[in-house]
Design a protein around this nucleic acid. Structure first.
Lengths: 195, 195
DNA sequence: GTCTATACGGAGATAGAC
DNA sequence: GTCTATCTCCGTATAGAC
């Protein structure tokens, strides 16, 4: 009862993040105004600055949260000990995670150039960390003699680029289930990597 | 002598295109102002409107010119008649063309959402046309029995996505020549597609 | 915690002189 | 063909009332 009119306790912060995520993904960071975000949340523009120091921090937080969740989700996956199973797990995990987080994935790739220099460094290092988890699998497979790749660094980037492509065309409810898509990509990845 | 001061005959138009290409690639369409473009060219903002009806048309023209050049360049490539040679030619052509036109390629992928609905349709159909040239090769290879792919449409998109990734990391003067990069990617593409 | 009001600057685009 | 000047609108961000 002591709460003033219009107060929504602690939920406005997350709602701002959600609205920004959706709007940035749809129109691009530079094209979205703070007023638009405020309108989507149902508050006035000025109120946003109780939750974020500025627009740049809003973008950074979205990307950092996304990359952190990507990394922890992959680390929480059950692991096999052979490289082949790990590569299949990575392929399927990456496709599924991207499918479930299309806006965040899109922003993480498209809005890198709109990060300040310091923020860019942070995000890039998280991305590098994720790429390294795949490269480690590939290196292990090369050691075991099950993978033959021209260059593990190039192969890492090639696999991730290929898998990222799924989000540009796959939509739920089309002629293929996500599991079928995973299987198709896994077949191509496997044949490209395995001896 | 009849020419007024500041006139640069017919070269201002192309200079506007070049400046816009570079600025859009660097900062993004939405973040670049007509004033910035004018400054880069060395004219006043109002003068731009002698060459383009508006900012949107400037973007569309850049993308359309790029896609058209991509298509005609590929059509001008010498063709082998077997699918395997054609796939290798496509792989190397695509990597090399992208390397030589990084700004245009970047814009063509990043600024699709900033096109008007009608302009988007045009660009999308040009892209589809380019993808179809690759899918035709893959289909031919499947018929000939030299390729085994889970789905020619998916394989087409997978190959292009993988090859597009090169531009995100490869820089001239690094540890690898472009020819070595082409060869690495071709090895992965070949093994992913060939029976 | 949210509101209204506003400072301050820059956006796209146009008019008319030269 | 380019310039200067300007219209009109919207951007980010802040101040202070409630």
């Amino acid at each position: 009862m002591a709460r003033t009119q219009g107060s929504h306790s602690g939920i406005t912060g997350p709602r701002i993040q959600d609205a920004a995520l959706q709007l940035f993904a749809q129109h691009g960071f530079a094209a979205v105004s703070m007023r638009q975000i405020a309108r989507a949340v149902g508050v006035q523009a000025g109120a946003l600055y109780n939750y974020t120091p500025d627009k740049q921090s809003l973008l950074f937080r979205l990307m950092e949260d996304h990359m952190t969740e990507l990394l922890t989700s992959w680390r929480d996956q059950p692991v096999a000990d052979d490289a082949l199973s790990q590569l299949e797990a990575f392929t399927r995990f990456h496709i599924r995670f991207n499918f479930e987080n299309p806006d965040a994935v899109f922003i993480a790739y498209m809005e890198l150039r709109n990060l300040s220099a310091e923020n860019f460094t942070v995000i890039e290092s998280l991305r590098r960390e994720y790429e390294n988890t795949l490269e480690t699998v590939l290196k292990q497979g090369v050691c075991e003699g099950v993978f033959a790749v021209p260059d593990t660094k190039i192969a890492t980037l090639a696999v991730i680029a290929m898998l990222n492509g799924v989000n540009t065309w796959y939509r739920a409810g089309g002629r293929l289930s996500l599991d079928q898509v995973e299987t198709s990509y896994w077949e191509m990845v496997r044949r490209a990597m395995v001896t």
